[in-house]
Design a binder for these strands. Structure first.
Lengths: 339, 339
DNA sequence: GATTGGCACTCGGTCCGTGCGAGTGCCAGG
DNA sequence: CCTGGCACTCGCACGGACCGAGTGCCAATC
């Protein structure tokens, strides 16, 4: 029906106006700023219906309307066109990310770029270990019985781990161990590494068996362990830009430091490569009740290496942010594939 | 003179009360809460003098007094006794830091510990490369002409760097290169590495010379480059605890992300191992005008590896925070020395 | 039947005047 | 040099009045 159609236009207009002005929007202002072709009175009727359906609400009796989570959801799902990035923005992405010298650098630049592009808090997950493959394993002897195990993945990630061996290790044994490990693991997906360990211990030369067992155990532990530094956060200063009440700001900052929470949100990426938007209460975490998360997986080809995205108030520019997140993820994916 | 002595007592009392209550403190309250042995009227006279000398100020005509930067400075320099940590706190430090598996982990725990102990923002600098020594250099071939150079220091830090060589490299050459580099650099202070590079290129076997030159150049670059990820920040949520005005909070958050600024403050550590306190304007950075920085170097023995400390409002518990910073630095120093 | 103009009503935000209380500075006396 | 007393200053919290934006409803209109 024409009615429903126009009501959706009204909702879209409300979201757009509210996002840009941060003021509850009234029927008169709507009629003025958008060519809806009807009078304020008609809009009022539509707004009453929209409120009844739970898409908008009014903070005070004599104030305009504000979108609810449900309203934003509808907007994102059906009312927002994908906003292509400007040429300048594309250029900025390239300029910003090119010239990175290693993985750390790439991700650091990414998080800063994303924060700047969206004026929100940006988060980037390190490439998940289990989806990467082993490029090289290095064993360094620190002292008689202490070894440093360094794992280098094909995504450029470097993981280190100290191993205490039960007995002192000879110099030759270290070399043997290095050769053995590399022969066994190089090229293997880390997810498959666990199952290889058992074989390896059995087939190892007897004089190395105890050593291989100890090191392999540590290796598996490193891979399985979720890893604490898997998240990079940037642009927190953008939080203070909008927020009025620091009491409201604190739990958000805490959640961002409590990386686990955000990690869970960011890493649940759609395998199809679509941008995921979680709005307000959908985040199912108290501190994020007033926040939205826009995230997407990045990777090369069909492999998702990790997720990245932004966190901001529910009142955000969804089309613009979704476009920025997607563009950055695509570029980072290419970059990592080429290294 | 007895006068001066008592005036200092008054200043100390003002600082203590203001820090704990966050209210400007008046003469009457002072007389009640501290055994100064004199009446409020006398205290008023002292306060008038202290204000004249610039140690305290009153925000409004009819309000109590508040310490100035200069007042805090005097308090820190002459009026504060070192507050020893409680047994429980010492225990907490141990419990928190033990069980760390690698450098990342140690520093991550440190920053969280410090933030929790002081309820301020904590910052920890990664061990400075130039003061570390080379434990091992590893060269991994990524593709025909791309090498990954991995540097492991005796402080457990791992640096990685991708090197593009002018020509394709053979497998044997990589092994030779690895051996050559390790022979030359293992055990050397990184600060001295630069001067060794020239020698190395000259003495290298001719077939390796070009390769050694390229890799060495990258190595030196890695060492000289200040490195962007050398700072760990934690506990920013504590900022929102105190601050009332998010507009005042934003520049601080920005400064913390702009790692360079804080890095400069933290890395200027006293070689004698004393705790350094910078109060308000002393920081010579606009965003930190209302903040104090308490920092100290950590390291093993006489070698300072880096700095750590806290950033908080000028109105902070200096004795407690100084004690916490020092204790944590000492413990971290031990931990890194033992690894 | 949908749309529109008119109109009474609600209610949050702002402005302003008042009273209160904390804190001070000064002064005269011990 | 210290002390008690006293007049004075202001910031702040409270409360009432005003104002205007915005709504919901209704009768008239296309």
């Amino acid at each position: 029906m024409a009615h429903d159609e126009r009501r959706l236009q009204v909702l879209r207009a409300i979201v757009q106006d509210f996002v840009s002005t941060n003021d509850p929007v009234g029927s008169k202002a709507l009629a003025e700023r958008h060519d809806l072709g009807v009078s304020p009175a008609t809009i009022r009727n539509d707004m009453a219906v929209l409120e009844e359906q739970g898409y908008i609400t009014q903070p005070h009796t004599s104030a305009g309307r504000v979108p609810t989570d449900k309203g934003y959801r509808l907007f994102v799902d059906r009312l927002s066109a994908v906003k292509p990035l400007s040429a300048a923005e594309r250029k900025a992405i390239e300029r910003f990310l090119d010239g990175a010298v290693d993985l750390h650098d790439v991700l650091g630049r990414t998080v800063r770029l994303l924060a700047q592009l969206t004026s929100q808090v940006a988060v980037v997950q390190y490439p998940t270990l289990s989806r990467s493959a082993v490029r090289h394993l290095e064993v360094v002897q620190l002292s008689g019985s202490r070894l440093l195990l360094v794992l280098i993945t094909d995504t450029g990630r470097v993981e280190q781990r100290i191993v205490d061996c039960p007995v002192d290790v000879g110099r030759d044994e270290v070399a043997d161990l290095r050769a053995t490990l590399n022969a066994a693991f190089t090229g293997a997906r880390l997810a498959d590494a666990g199952s290889k360990v058992a074989d390896l211990v059995d087939t190892a030369p007897s004089h190395l068996r105890a050593l291989v067992a100890a090191v392999s155990a540590a290796l598996v532990e490193t891979l399985v362990e979720p890893g604490e530094d898997r998240l990079l956060v940037g642009g927190t200063a953008n939080l203070a830009r909008v927020a009025v009440d620091p009491g409201h700001l604190r739990p958000l900052l805490e959640a961002l430091e409590e990386q686990v929470v955000v990690l869970r949100l960011i890493s649940e990426v759609d395998s199809g490569g679509a941008v995921l938007v979680r709005i307000g209460e959908e985040n199912a975490h108290e501190a994020l009740a007033g926040a939205s998360v826009v995230s997407v997986g990045y990777g090369s080809g069909d492999r998702a290496l990790g997720g990245l995205g932004i966190v901001g108030p529910t009142r955000m520019d969804y089309p613009g942010n979704m476009a920025a997140v997607r563009a950055v993820a695509r570029y980072v994916g290419q970059l990592l594939a080429g290294s």
